[in-house]
């Protein structure tokens, strides 16, 4: 009989994937006021995978804990995660205005380490990156801090009930890579892993009754001090418009002009 899983799913509220972000006038950050926010798409995959691990059976799942650290509104994504099937949520309220800016990956990893120790998790499934700062570091740092094995950018996760081993497939240039590890471990998710479900109305109603704990950074007693300083945020350079040439000779002349041939 394999050990029951206690899964931690860290999630983040970010500017919606379909919204085009705009840099603020002071060029210090991206404009967030009045912009639609949703759960980081990679985190949706983590929630979905955790719920599927439970639904597939094979290994017993004791607990799926959705965790977020962020402003008051970040509680919305915890409700979404619980509507998708997470059992409960923890919200560490961090106000970037008061707390000296957004948490950095190392700060988040330290915070998660404290959560894992307190909640006795043996599997952490994280998105491989959050689409707002695209750092893609938290999972790896957490694995380092905990001294656990890690399998990043998972496209498939399989449990073996007998050996207690986890097999993770990831897509790499030119093929797939297969990793095997024993629990406890860290998995980060990639787009091919699954297709997240919709939050159904009955489950949204049920999620309202699920436990959502509010905590503060002080509860975990970790140093989340900022080590990075943002100098400037700018838009990528606009794409140069193309031009039309009349014929083949025109094209050759143009290419010569540009020094391409």
């Amino acid at each position: 009989m394999s050990t029951p899983l206690r899964i931690l799913v860290p999630i983040k509220r970010v500017i919606d994937y379909a919204v085009k972000p705009r840099v603020n006038k002071a060029q210090t950050a991206v404009e967030t006021a009045g912009v639609k926010h949703s759960m980081n798409p990679f985190d949706e995959l983590s929630v979905e995978e955790s719920v599927r691990i439970r639904e597939r059976g094979g290994v017993p799942v004791d607990d799926i804990l959705a965790f977020t650290a962020g402003p008051a509104k970040a509680a919305e994504v915890l409700r979404t995660a619980m509507a998708m099937g997470a059992d409960r949520g923890i919200h560490v309220e961090v106000d970037p205005e008061k707390d000296g800016g957004e948490l950095e990956p190392l700060g988040v990893a330290k915070l998660l380490k404290a959560v894992v120790e307190k909640e006795k998790n043996n599997l952490v499934i994280l998105g491989k990156q959050s689409i707002d700062d695209d750092a893609g570091q938290t999972g790896q740092m957490l694995a380092g801090l905990l001294g656990w094995p890690q399998a990043t950018q998972a496209s498939e996760v399989k449990f073996s009930a007998e050996s207690g081993e986890v097999t993770v497939t990831k897509e790499v240039d030119g093929g797939v890579e297969t990793l095997r590890a024993k629990l406890p471990m860290i998995i980060t998710t990639d787009l091919r892993l699954n297709e997240p479900r919709y939050a159904s109305l009955p489950n949204i109603m049920k999620a309202k009754k699920k436990k959502l704990e509010k905590k503060t950074l002080a509860d975990y007693d970790v140093d989340v001090g900022r080590r990075l300083k943002t100098i400037k945020v700018t838009d990528p350079p606009p794409r140069q418009g193309g031009g039309k040439v009349d014929d083949v000779d025109g094209m050759i002349a143009k290419l010569k002009d540009l020094g391409a041939i």
Partner: peptide
Amino acid sequence: LSNDIISDGVLAQDETQVQ
């Protein structure tokens, strides 16, 4: 839902789901 007018339903959680 509670008056059995609808049997089931989903609510889009983000713009991608809206589309």
